[in-house]
Amino acid sequence: MHRLYLVPTLLINVVIIFIPAVLTIALAFYRWDGIGMPVFVGLANFRQLLADRVFWTALGNNVIWTVIFLTVPIAMGLLAATMMLVARRGSTFFQVVYFLPMVIATAITARVWQGMIYSPLSGIAGLITRAGFPVPNPLTQTSTALYGIAVVDLWHWWGFLCVIFFAALRQVPQEQIEAARIEGASFWQMLRYVLLPGIRPTITLMMIMTIIWSFLVFDFVYILTQGGPAFSSEVLSTLAYRSAFYDLAVGKAAAVAVVISLFGLATTAVYIRLQAKEFDQ
């Protein structure tokens, strides 16, 4: 009875993820403080969100985050991966070092950047300021807080993409590269006409995952600024967390969670359609 083999995984998954997810969707239509009886309020939670400036800031920040992570780390990763292909020697060493930030806990990465780099007292920013070039702490300015966090996440993240792209690049057929080389293609021509088309499925997949992950970003924002100053770096996931556990507005938190999931769902749908199109060709 091989069906029984699936029971442990599915049981744990359904109890921990599926049932609570269904409850969250239901809770989005209730007002609940987490303790008493939930009160049905229809669409009130969503209507409140639409009128909430912080919600729009958070949503906008998630969009900015998505745009940053769709461009900067993917470009860095692709460029570095191609250069490793050119360099060949030492590529294993470069890979290991670039990947290293991925295995360090987010809480630790966040604190190192906060204290050793951004801090005006103990960090590099302070050192530069004392040398006569004032550098404000990006995390304490409303205009830069989000970007300050993004830099930390970029540092932590880009090497992962680089390693993935490098693995994909090595599977580009040798003959295509040879042929282009014999015809005298330059580095950029090689990249544009041979290598990038060769790993397009991997790039597409990574872009789709980037969009999904960009709406889930939590750790770095929560640890570095908790969404501040003045909600300037708030994202949807921190807004949901704070609503549920600090304001005890679980219904509102559930509504935000539903909005986050809708973005993930839409992205997945687009991906499946793209795949289907490619399949038809």
Partner: peptide
């Protein structure tokens, strides 16, 4: 498909009922 779908679900989608439960 179900297992793949759960990997894209945000933690916040199941965190709150799970915590209070």
């Amino acid at each position: 498909f179900y297992l793949l779908a759960t990997t894209t679900a945000p933690i916040q989608l199941f965190l709150f009922p799970l915590y209070f439960g």
